[in-house]
């Protein structure tokens, strides 16, 4: 009996591992149909083999479980670290954006800034000047309160516009960073006015500030003439914006 079992077992193994020739395999397939004992032995073999395979998967799962303990720890620590990393990343992005805006702003501002000098304003001698409001405006201007200075100058200009008022409204707009408004006022200063050169120079700088390079070039080209008190600066600026 055992001999027979053993013989079946060896044959089944050869069949299972593909060690039989095509002819022998065909023969074995036929015997599986007609030989009930062999068929039963084969079924028994298949069942046991399945158990072996399942046991192997079971062992594999145990190995995974051992790894899971370590991997779960890593996973959780990464999860905890994630918000901190996100927080740092967000802060860096904000800082980077601010610095880029600042850098960009400076890039636009700096060239014109380097050539700008603050107008000293008109002398304020209380009692000697009939226009007290203009004195007040100049006082505010000298105290760097350009908004108040501009308001007073605008009120005065609405009553009776003069080149002096127009020029200083432009200057205050420039100081406030309102370059487009400044351009409108500097442009209005009459050619005959004593403020004309100053206004033109600041007009050029205002154009530069808003990146209107053609207009900037035009204004400084006019100021290049030796008769202008800004000819040297105009030359330098023209070279710079080439």
């Amino acid at each position: 009996m055992e001999q027979r079992d053993r013989s079946f077992f060896d044959e089944i193994n050869d069949y299972h591992f593909g060690n039989l020739s095509a002819q022998d395999k065909l023969l074995f397939d036929s015997r599986l149909i007609i030989d009930l004992e062999l068929a039963a032995a084969y079924e028994e073999f298949s069942d046991t083999l399945k158990i072996i395979k399942q046991q192997n998967i079971h062992n594999l799962k145990n190995d995974f479980q051992l790894l899971d303990a370590v991997l779960d720890k890593e996973f959780l620590s990464n999860q905890k670290r994630k918000p901190v990393i996100l927080y740092i990343a967000a802060t860096l992005v904000v800082l980077l954006s601010i610095s880029m805006i600042y850098f960009h702003q400076n890039k636009l501002d700096n060239p014109a800034k380097a050539y700008y000098e603050k107008d000293i304003g008109l002398p304020v001698v209380m009692g000697e000047n009939n226009n007290i409001q203009l004195d007040r405006a100049m006082s505010f201007y000298k105290l760097n309160d350009y908004e108040k200075a501009k308001n007073i100058l605008t009120l005065l200009s609405n009553k009776k516009p003069t080149d002096t008022l127009t020029y200083y409204i432009g200057v205050n707009n420039y100081e406030l960073g309102q370059y487009k408004n400044a351009i409108n006022f500097f442009k209005k200063v009459d050619k005959q006015s004593s403020f004309y050169d100053k206004a033109q120079y600041r007009l050029g700088l205002s154009y530069w500030q808003v990146n209107e390079i053609d207009s900037t070039r035009q204004v400084f080209s006019n100021l290049k003439s030796p008769s202008s008190s800004y000819s040297v600066q105009a030359e330098l600026i023209l070279k710079k914006i080439k």
């Binding site: 077992f9 060896d10 028994e44 046991t48 072996i52």
Partner: peptide
Amino acid sequence: AKKKRYECFKKLTVIYQ
């Protein structure tokens, strides 16, 4: 090896059955 394979497999089959 063949003999041992048979013996071990058989033992397992018996346990399983």
